[in-house]
Simulated scan of single mutants.
Amino acid sequence: MPNAYERAEKTHARNNEGIRLQKLLAQAGFGSRRKCEEIIQEGRVEVDGELTTELGTRVDPGQQQIRVDGSRIRLDTRHITLALNKPKRVLSTMDDPKGRFTLRDIVGDRYERIFHMGRLDYDSEGLILMTNDGELSQHVMHPRYEVEKTYIATLEGRIGGNVCRRLVSQGVRLDDGLIKLDHCAIIDGNRDTTIVKVVLHSGKNRIVRRIFGAIGFPVKRLVRTQIGPIKLGDLKPGSYRVLSVTEVRSLSKEVGL
């Protein structure tokens, strides 16, 4: 256990090395240097569990844990996180022994050890997140955190608002248990087809298709448009983009990092 003198020496050494705290916050997407100084002075920043309000404090993000409003700052230039728009008939995997089109065919080998966080079935489309940050990946996929996911589903047949309300309030029982939607809203429809927006936390395999199939409305097309705070936006099918520092921070906060 270091004595008071040793602790003071360590603090002095640290204050003459590392990166200024306001600069680190700016790099992490919290705004301008001036804005980050205000965040520090407002008492919103912790370094290794201790409140820090002194401007000019130097930190080592590789050795110290920095939090803003209780959320840990993750700033590692080796880590990359992507948002990818998966087209139909693409496997949510990096390799396929049968030679079918995979995510690797879209992202290539540019990013070392990158992997998908969750899956979409072969015929479904939309947002898939990929990263080489193992800790972030484990948290996003862990059932404990149940990240909210949004889909646009095109159904066979015409359903009414009462069906959506029942799926939210009562749910439907599948082979692996009862499942409820968090939100269900009709976007458009005609005599033969209904388009609905669906929000749920479950990451079970083919869950949206199974829910509507169980009540007699097979899914003709399924597009995932959002995972937690990350939106698909206008990303074209078969393309991807690198998430901003702000987006990664918001996703990390969503999953308890």
Rank of each mutant, 00 (worst) to 15 (best):
G29R: 02
G29I: 09
F30L: 09
F30E: 04
G31S: 09
R33G: 04
E38R: 15
I40N: 06
E42F: 06
V45D: 05
E46V: 06
T53V: 15
E54L: 15
R58W: 02
G62Q: 13
G62S: 10
G62M: 03
Q65S: 11
R67E: 10
V68I: 14
R72V: 14
I73T: 00
R74F: 07
L75H: 14
L75K: 05
T77Q: 11
R78Q: 14
H79L: 05
T81P: 02
T81S: 09
L82V: 05
A83C: 09
L84S: 03
L84Q: 01
K88Q: 11
K88T: 12
L91H: 10
L91E: 03
S92E: 11
T93W: 11
T93G: 05
M94R: 01
D95W: 09
D95G: 00
D96V: 06
F101C: 02
R104A: 13
R104L: 06
R104F: 08
R104G: 10
D105Q: 11
I106K: 09
V107G: 02
V107E: 01
G108K: 07
I114K: 01
I114S: 00
M117E: 10
M117P: 06
G118W: 12
G118C: 09
R119G: 06
R119T: 13
R119M: 11
L120G: 07
L120W: 12
E125W: 09
E125C: 03
E125L: 06
L127A: 03
